[in-house]
Design a protein around this nucleic acid. Structure first.
Length: 488
RNA sequence: GGCGGCAUAGCCAAGUGGCUAAGGCAGCGGUCUGCAAAACCGUUUGACACCGGUUCGAGUCCGGUUGCCGCCUCCA
């Protein structure tokens, strides 16, 4: 079995073969840090988090690079609005991004480079492009000449003529061809600037990613990722620059995630339906968001809605209830340290559950099918726990099944919480809770039940229910829990 | 205008030629329970947008129709 990935460049699924056996270099376009990140960024981050987790679980040695664009028009614009220095502004949003990722359980990349820390690399690459005749200088601006690069448009599947015909923006007089794009921008007064052979200025948007990816992964590397919308012009231009400058192929596989819509509409500032990650985390648990994001294939559009999130919550609760019940039955799980990915899916051990999981995930990361398998396994485990047979065999079987379940969960960044902690986090804890009072009421109800005074017992249960407390009678006595919003 | 994507039960969503079309949520019936909750079992009478074609056989391939969406401009 081997991993197959959809390659945007060829527009089909291809068997993944790394350049160096067993090693993978992956570069993902991160964020431009001029504002808080929204759930679309979260989807992208989580998709590639899972790609990296899965590659590692399958035994690849992965070098994951995810950049920050910390110099750019939007940052400058925003800094003018707020009066804040561009560096401080960028720093603030980088910090916010890191907080968001931590909250979402997205693992850090191995390298998280910033554009402003690679100005030398950028200038060097632009210099080579000018030298080789792929770029031309006009004043203190430098442009890439798309006509000089034979395969321009190949990645996004466009022809230069068509793009010119469909262009809807005014053409910059300085450009030799309407589709030419800027590599280096001369600085206007008050803008951040660096010295260069073409005068003081700053890099264009696309060049930084070409420079930084090649710097850390080599001119020719395995996987380049980002949101769908980056295919053109960003990735097309990145590819053109890097290939022109280095004279070798650039990324082998281009992986792009689909968009998030909100209540069926595209998320945009003008519509006012822009949901930041921290807004979402106010209402939903990170694990809910992750389960929701994984419930659909990463390349398909995904609609964010309250009902969909609550549905994800119900499913997640189902899984965690089983995990909690397992703890009560066979004790807590051990050795499941969070965020550490060992190659637990590297080899097939003949176990049909893991094999099936590998087989669906190998098929272009079919997380939706993977979740289906996880739910199947949950039912299996519940069934075993429901059966009246109690033996040592069953105990060890349950422990093994949980191990498999948690391994697959880990590849998806799910099920890494302790069940009790998860339930504690997910409930809306009532402001006034008096545990002793609750216990007392339950004792009172027990007495009533023993006396078969059902009316009184039910009245007590109803009273507790009003406080958001749900009772569950079992063979070992009565347990209580908080009601979870959107669920029982 | 150009390029591309999507249409599967009440809702969400897998499925890329072949046994009775995953899974989740919701509903309904049952087991358990004093009744519930949770769990389990069953179930939602013909779910694959429509029309043609290829094939022994298509949700799955090809052509067309309709509807929705994305990109072509900053955008994850």
């Amino acid at each position: 079995m081997s991993l197959r990935l959809y390659n945007s460049a060829s527009r089909k699924k291809e068997t993944f073969k790394p350049i160096r056996n067993g090693e993978v270099g992956i570069y993902v376009c991160g964020v431009t840090v001029y504002d808080l990140c929204h759930i679309g960024h979260a989807r992208s981050a989580i998709v590639f988090d899972i790609l990296v987790r899965y590659l590692r679980a399958r035994g690849f040695k992965v070098t994951y690079v995810r950049n920050f664009t910390d110099v750019d028009d939007k940052i400058i614009e925003r800094s003018k609005e707020t009066g804040e220095d561009t560096t401080a502004l960028a720093e603030r949003y980088i910090h916010a991004f890191c907080e968001d990722m931590l909250a979402l359980g997205v693992l850090n990349a191995d390298v998280e480079p910033r554009a402003t820390e690679h100005i030398d690399d950028i200038i060097d690459m632009i210099g080579r492009l000018v030298e080789k005749g792929f770029a031309y200088v006009d004043d203190s601006d430098v442009y890439f000449s798309v006509e000089k690069f034979d395969t321009y448009g190949q990645l996004s599947g466009r022809r230069l003529e068509e793009m010119v015909a469909g262009a809807r923006i005014a053409v910059d007089e300085k450009k030799k061809h309407p589709m030419d794009f800027v590599l280096w921008k001369g600085a206007k007064p008050g803008e951040p600037k660096w010295k260069s052979p073409w005068g003081e200025g700053r890099p264009g948007w696309h060049i930084e990613c070409s420079a930084m990816s090649c710097r850390y992964l080599g001119a020719n590397f395995d996987i380049h990722g980002g949101g769908r919308d980056l295919i053109f012009p960003h990735h097309e231009n990145e590819r053109a620059q890097a290939m022109a400058a280095n004279g070798v192929n650039f990324a082998r596989y281009w992986v792009h995630n689909g968009f998030v819509t909100v209540e069926s509409e595209k998320m945009s500032k003008s519509l006012g339906n822009f949901i930041t990650i921290r807004d979402a985390l106010q209402s939903y648990h990170p694990q809910e968001l992750r389960l929701f994001l994984l419930s659909k294939h990463y390349r398909s559009p995904l609609d964010f809605s309250r009902s969909a999130l609550l549905e994800a919550r119900c499913g997640l609760i189902r899984i965690y209830r089983t995990l909690q019940r397992l703890e009560e039955t066979v004790g807590p799980s051990k050795g499941n340290s969070r965020g550490i990915i060992t190659p637990f899916l590297a080899t097939s051990d003949g176990d049909s559950f893991k094999d099936q999981f590998i087989s669906v995930m190998d098929d272009d990361l079919n997380t939706a099918a993977g979740l289906g398998l996880i739910f199947d396994k949950v039912r299996d485990i519940n069934r075993v726990m429901d059966s009246s047979v109690k033996s040592r065999d069953i105990r060890s079987r349950l422990i093994q099944e949980r191990r498999d379940l948690l391994d697959c969960g880990k590849a998806l960044g799910l099920l890494e919480e302790e069940p009790s902690k998860f339930f504690q986090e997910i409930v809306e804890t009532p402001s006034e809770i008096d545990t002793e009072e609750i216990e007392k009421m339950i004792q009172g109800r027990d007495a009533a039940r023993r006396a078969k005074d059902w009316a009184r017992a039910d009245a007590i249960r109803e009273e507790l229910s009003k406080k958001g407390i749900i009772l569950e009678d079992g063979p070992k006595g009565t347990k209580w829990r908080f009601r979870i919003e959107g669920s029982g």
